[in-house]
């Protein structure tokens, strides 16, 4: 179900945001738009399929714990 929602969302984004303004965007803008969209799409598809994607919290916590040892 979640995977369907994600795929539908991205189809809508491409149909209603990317394609209508394609002509007004430069090649650079289009490339950056597509890269950002692809990255988020991959992460969300993996998340919706229950595949563990490493988040930033763990490394941030490890670094801070090593450097500062914050109190509970």
């Amino acid at each position: 179900m979640l995977t369907t929602i994600v795929i539908l969302l991205y189809i809508c984004v491409v149909l209603f945001d990317f394609l209508p303004s394609k002509e007004t965007r430069s090649t650079k803008e289009r490339v950056i738009y597509c890269i950002l969209l692809t990255v988020s799409f991959c992460v969300l598809i993996l998340y919706s399929l229950d595949i563990k994607v490493p988040g930033p919290t763990e490394p941030i916590r490890n670094v801070i714990e090593t450097l500062f040892k914050p109190s509970k």
Binding site: V13, D17, Y33, L36, V39, S40, V43, L44, P56
Partner: peptide, 14 residues
């Protein structure tokens, strides 16, 4: 829109 979807993706795994 692409940046906001990146935020959603980050939010899901954070």
């Amino acid at each position: 829109l692409p940046v906001s979807l990146l935020a959603v993706a980050l939010s899901a795994i954070v």
